[in-house]
Design a protein around this nucleic acid. Structure first.
Lengths: 258, 258
DNA sequence: CTTAAACGATCAAAATTTTGATTGAATAAG
DNA sequence: CTTATTCAATCAAAATTTTGATCGTTTAAG
């Protein structure tokens, strides 16, 4: 996918920020033509942005890592958060699980529970885990399958959601800024997430502390009264203050109760 | 991941079953050394099994969830039927694959082809197989997941279908009576199948010969002009006569042309 | 509007990968 | 145990990809 030199190039951009094409060529010991070709490749992959005479890491790519790699990042925090979220699941409720790695941790608890439950999801991964669990009544929304994280997105997904009413939505966050705005690296994914929230009576946002003070390209929505955020460490003061004003419930998951 | 020649090789093994390395080399117009290298690659990917002097598609690739038993019934006939059906797939078409075991055989051919294709399905099994295949643009319709065969059914599934237009539908049959009526054991499955047929320009019914002169509880629809039936042995005369009158195309798949 | 720099396209040279023949070792059949 | 194949390793030739220089064109700053 990426050559060693392209990785060097990405590392350089991460270190230096916006960098002149000339400087990149000198630093890598390659010709301008080669650097330009690499930039064209990386641009096609959505990993860098080009300006006239310079380049920088694509804003979208700062968070977009392969799903498998992401799964292990902050795994402990995610498990803790998932355990706390599971405590909020109401018996007999219809829940929706999104396609995030944090929510995937929640699936383990659902498999182990002894009450029947209705689960909707847009995640093929979640579907694989729950398909044959007898106390789970599983439904998928449809949609185009994103290879990135095996989620279903697009118009088909949104249309299906608009015919549903969900009791409890569990949503993993990619980025949360201090004004409480959620954002995502993929436009389709963002649109689907926004639709989910519009159709849910209760929304739980699961986000480990690394997600704060971040923004991705595509805004999902801004947290409002009644939304509940579950995280693993106290958030930045600026966000905490905003949450208090806006009446957003804030839960710090404690690893003791896992 | 796989070169065009490796795809050819997989397609060849699907058609012929176990094949001599010598024959593969001759068929592909490559040297023995090259074929062996390809086999080593494909073996490392778990896609083929090697014997001394020969190779075949890995049996692990046929591993099953709930309906393992059914898949092996009449497996040879199903493979033959699937190979013939694959010959009918038009380049660039949008195809729909249902959740039957016969159609699942067709998936192997789609994985091995080297043209891009758009696939819709209501089968979680098909989705698992195709999710990460790069030349396949995969979409699922939604719906409640049936544990029996991991298909998606119900109102959500039908609603999604009603927003689609499908070029080529490949549908496995449970039972076909002599009047050309298809029937199914599950009411939801029958309803979804009927909806699929209403949305498809071309419908191919894949049914091995054991499905004739059978009825199940829930009627799907009655075959009409233009519908195409692919089977492995000549059907009962009563059905054949009806098919001729009703202008239903009838293809007997021949294992020789696979 | 002018101009200097950056850009994409093209092409030959260089580097890399793929291929097929040959070898001795391993394997299964008799 | 013997023997005829098949197998993996090696190496040079062939094919493919990558690279850097040079063009005319496009872009943005003055």
């Amino acid at each position: 996918m990426t050559t060693p030199r392209q990785n060097q190039l990405l590392a350089l951009l991460l270190k230096r920020g916006q960098t002149q094409v000339q400087d990149i060529a000198q630093e890598l010991g390659a010709s301008l033509a080669t650097v330009r070709r690499d930039l064209t490749d990386l641009e096609a992959q959505g990993r860098v942005e080009r300006l006239h005479g310079a380049a920088q890491i694509a804003s979208a790519a700062r968070e977009e890592v392969a799903f498998a790699a992401r799964e292990s990042v902050n795994a402990r925090a995610k498990r803790t958060i998932a355990a706390t979220a599971f405590g909020a699941v109401k018996p007999g409720a219809t829940v929706f699980l999104d396609a995030s790695t944090t929510v995937l941790q929640l699936v383990r608890h659902i498999i182990a529970m002894d009450q029947p439950i209705k689960v909707f999801t847009n995640s093929l991964r979640v579907a694989q885990e729950l398909a044959l669990v007898s106390h789970v009544d599983l439904s998928l929304i449809g949609g185009r399958v994103r290879e990135e994280n095996l989620s279903m997105v697009g118009p088909l997904a949104c249309a299906a959601l608009n015919n549903l009413w969900i009791d409890q939505l569990f949503l993993g966050a990619t980025a949360i800024d201090n004004e409480g705005t959620l954002s995502s690296v993929d436009a389709d994914e963002a649109a689907v997430n926004a639709t989910m929230m519009a159709r849910a009576a209760e929304t739980f946002i699961l986000a480990d502390s690394s997600k704060f003070e971040k923004r991705a390209t595509h805004a999902v929505t801004t947290l409002r009264e009644g939304h509940r955020l579950i995280t693993d460490l106290p958030p930045p003061p600026a966000f905490a203050a905003h949450a208090k004003r806006a009446d957003i419930s804030l839960t710090i998951a404690n690893s003791a109760d896992t």
